[in-house]
Simulated assay, not measured.
Amino acid sequence: MTTEDMEALAAQILSALQGALSDGWDQIDAFHKSQSEKLTRQAALLVQIRISGELKDSPEMFDFMIEQLQDKVENFAIAVANLTVLTLQNAWNASVEVIWGAINAALEGASLPALPIPEGR
């Protein structure tokens, strides 16, 4: 493999990674913005309810509403973590596709069998 071939392969790997990571980030960012706005509105509403004294005779109801918000925040964090893992998996797959594609093209050019593409981790 020549220096030019290696530079071209490195550029292809970088391009594949950038594409996968950019797509993933766009999904995370859109989800984050949407959910953050909803959580903010819910938190503001709870503050307003508390300050106004609307539930002063029902602290259990206020506690219940706070627990619901806590659950939503936890689910939000889990969803962001899952989207992040999916993004990293897609970056792995994109890199492997480029690298193993180049290896197998060279092997097949030498009349050798192709290597199996590794499965995601």
Rank of each mutant, 00 (worst) to 15 (best):
A30R: 08
N90H: 09
D57T: 08
A10N: 12
F62W: 11
R121Y: 13
K56I: 03
L14K: 15
A114D: 00
L69Y: 03
I117D: 07
L45T: 11
Q12M: 09
S58R: 09
A20Y: 02
K38R: 15
M65L: 15
A10C: 06
L86Q: 14
Q35G: 01
M6Y: 11
I51W: 10
D23W: 13
E60W: 11
A94N: 02
M1A: 14
L107M: 10
W92A: 02
T87D: 00
A10P: 02
K72S: 12
S36P: 00
A30W: 14
E7A: 10
D23G: 06
D57I: 04
E108L: 06
V47W: 09
D23F: 09
L55V: 05
A10T: 10
I66C: 09
L112C: 04
A16E: 00
I78N: 05
E74C: 07
F76N: 01
R41E: 15
A110D: 07
S58V: 03
E67N: 12
T3P: 07
V85E: 10
V47S: 06
F76C: 02
E60R: 08
E37W: 12
N90Q: 08
I49R: 14
R121W: 14
H32N: 09
E54F: 10
L55G: 03
T84G: 13
A91I: 03
F64M: 11
S111D: 15
Q18K: 15
L45D: 06
F76S: 01
A79C: 11
A81V: 09
I117Q: 12
S58A: 04
P118F: 02
Q42G: 01
W100K: 08
A20T: 00
L55K: 06
R50P: 08
E74H: 13
I13W: 11
N90R: 07
D57Y: 09
R41K: 15
G101H: 04
S34N: 05
P113A: 01
I78S: 07
G101Q: 01
A110N: 10
N104S: 01
L46D: 01
G120N: 12
I51N: 07
N75I: 04
Q35K: 15
M65C: 04
L55S: 03
